[in-house]
Amino acid sequence: MSNYIPVLLFLVAVLGLTGLMMAMVIFLGPKRSNPDKELPFETGSAPSPGDARERYPVHFYLVAILFIVFDIEIAFMYPWAVKFRQLGLFGLVEMLVFAAILMFGWFYIIKRGALKWK
């Protein structure tokens, strides 16, 4: 377990720094409020009217699924990268075959224009 003390220290540092910055903003920052500043922030444009809980286009889901697929591909590369030197050329070919099969999917996505928005 003592191997994980750096992780714990990192966690404490992250939480401490975040807390410190929040506290500095609260206690040190000037508070000059006006109605415009109280509006919900929406990427610089005026807030859209109505309920935020609109139904979203299914296109978002497509992007999320595609993200997950390639996320898992990268996850497989993690133990592969750790073992890369021992596996040598064999490991490289192995991962290339794995990536090549997924590249068919990538070509299919591009060909169908799945990532084009509207």
Partner: peptide, 24 residues
């Protein structure tokens, strides 16, 4: 491990085919 990539490929093609319902 290699077959897992086929599974992922199936997920890609499945979701694209369902959402973009247009013949090639």
């Amino acid at each position: 491990f290699e077959i897992a990539s086929v599974l992922l490929l199936g997920a890609i093609i499945g979701v694209v085919a369902m959402i973009k319902r247009k013949p090639l």
